[in-house]
């Protein structure tokens, strides 16, 4: 180590310089990542749910947005679709959700008992259902067909059996079915 001591201060300076350079690169990488996330969030509108909405889970069966007769898919006047659903141990209502392809869809859902989750396989639709709060997600399907919709959070002993379904059908088909008004689902089909 004697040779090293002779070069001590010079090599320490080199070491510090290399290190500073790496630290700078690391900081730049991180700033870029944060900017990318901000850009994607603002520009592509891929943001998580912006507002917090609460609801009393012991009354959802009795009145308000999530009464049984209001669950399912509805075609709004502007051509968009709203889907309302609830999760409870151990099923979703409706257990089969029907929606049109190529249409902006708003999913509004909540839980009637414990924490559940909704995940639609093969898509980015993925949200928690926390009792007391309403979850809202925007979605749009480009491909018709059947998708599995499992509950993705442990909700007690029947969790492994909590699988729903999403049926994406042709836009015109959906419009035809929606003509009579009311709430659509594909339960029993």
């Amino acid at each position: 180590m004697s040779a090293e001591q002779a070069h001590g201060s010079a090599s320490a300076e080199v070491a510090a310089r290399v290190e500073r350079r790496w630290a700078t690169i690391a900081v730049i990488i991180i700033v870029c990542m944060a900017l990318l996330a901000a850009f994607a969030g603002i520009h592509r509108a891929t943001m998580p749910q912006p507002r917090v909405e609460t609801i009393d889970p012991s009354r959802i069966h009795l009145s308000g947005e999530f009464v049984e007769s209001n669950l399912g898919s509805v075609l709004e006047a502007n051509g968009n679709v709203t889907v309302r659903a609830i999760g409870q141990q151990y099923s979703f209502t409706p257990a089969c959700i029907v929606v049109p392809a190529d249409t902006p869809i708003t999913l509004r859902a909540t839980s009637a008992d414990v924490v559940h989750g909704i995940l639609i396989q093969g898509t980015n639709v993925n949200t928690m259902l926390v009792p007391g709060y309403i979850s809202e997600q925007l979605m749009r399907f480009t491909r018709t067909g059947d998708y599995l919709m499992p509950c993705q959070e442990f909700c007690s002993f029947g969790h492994e059996g909590m699988w729903g379904k999403v049926k994406v059908i042709d836009k015109a088909d959906f419009a035809g079915r929606a003509k009579g008004g009311g709430r659509l689902s594909c339960v029993g089909q």
Partner: peptide, 23 residues
């Protein structure tokens, strides 16, 4: 991130701070 009881603002702040922990 996928929860309904936190607004987007705090989610973004936490996301940005998370990037820092890579440092």
């Amino acid at each position: 991130f996928a929860d309904p009881m936190v607004g987007a603002g705090f989610k973004f702040i936490h996301s940005a701070f998370t990037a820092l922990v890579a440092l």
